[in-house]
Design a protein around this nucleic acid. Structure first.
Length: 229
DNA sequence: AATAATGTCAACCGCATTAAA
DNA sequence: TTTTAATGCGGTTGACATTAT
């Protein structure tokens, strides 16, 4: 049996009080982030380190944006989800001031339903076959209206058994979309306002692909895709 | 006005991954 | 190389708010 992450006896749970927040913020301002295990005691908090970390990352960090998601942020989340699946921390990493928890909650409460209403399966970003084509729009951002020009370069996507099935499904969906949605420009290269977002995504996908390829290198008929918003 | 249903979001839990010994 | 502890991540839960009946 695995030990608990930290001593749980006598620790508080549930919502944080203002005083607790203040103690945590003060401590991190003085000593910086890290060493979450010892932080609670050092900061005079009756919380487990995990709880402190989560509170800081999701709520107290000064660089958090909070508030309503902008339309271009929505677009980006949808596109990144199509590429990366439920890798919320990766997705959130491309949205300055947003946390993985926030992105995940927003996806589950807003975007998922939005896609479903558009006749799109939010799991794999495929068009729902039951709806007439005129009602089907591409999930990967092309049905949105953001004015910002965007680029998503998808690296070769391949199936990794189990956890990454979503990736390959999304990839094949994107591939399909070139055929079924001729108005979608999947040619190559546009720029994006989210500064370095795409190049970093590209890098991360490369890493995913590399680990994928190292497992099954026999197949190399992989599409290179690029989406326009 | 009261109650039920539904939505939202902060926080927790358990597993996976990484780093250190 | 193996073991162990710390940290990170995604799924899930539960409290509270809002909307519908």
């Amino acid at each position: 049996m695995r030990k608990p992450c930290c001593e749980k006896q006598g620790t508080n749970k549930g919502a944080w009080s203002k005083q607790e927040d203040q103690k945590l913020v003060d401590y991190i301002r003085r000593h910086g982030e890290g060493c979450w295990r010892t932080l609670p005691q050092a900061a005079g908090l009756l919380r487990c380190g995990k709880s402190c970390r989560l509170r800081w990352i999701n709520y107290l960090r000064p660089d958090l944006k909070r508030g309503k998601f902008a339309e271009d942020e929505e677009d980006l989340i949808i596109k990144l989800h199509a590429l990366l699946g439920n890798r919320w921390s990766l997705i959130a990493g491309r949205l300055p001031g947003r946390t993985d928890n926030e992105v995940k909650n927003y996806w589950n409460s807003h975007l998922r339903r939005k896609l479903m209403n558009m006749g799109i399966d939010p799991k794999n970003h495929r068009l729902n076959q039951n709806l007439p084509r005129s009602q089907n729009r591409c999930a990967s951002g092309c049905a949105t209206t953001s004015s910002a020009s965007k680029e998503i370069v998808s690296h070769p996507l391949k199936t990794r058994l189990g956890e990454n099935d979503q990736l390959s499904e999304a990839a094949s969906c994107l591939e399909d979309s070139t055929r079924c949605l001729p108005d979608l420009n999947l040619d190559l290269k546009i720029t994006i306002d989210h500064s370095s977002s795409i190049s970093i995504v590209e890098e991360e996908k490369k890493q995913i692909d590399e680990s994928t390829l190292s497992r099954d290198s026999e197949c190399d008929t992989r599409p290179t895709l690029l989406l326009f918003g």
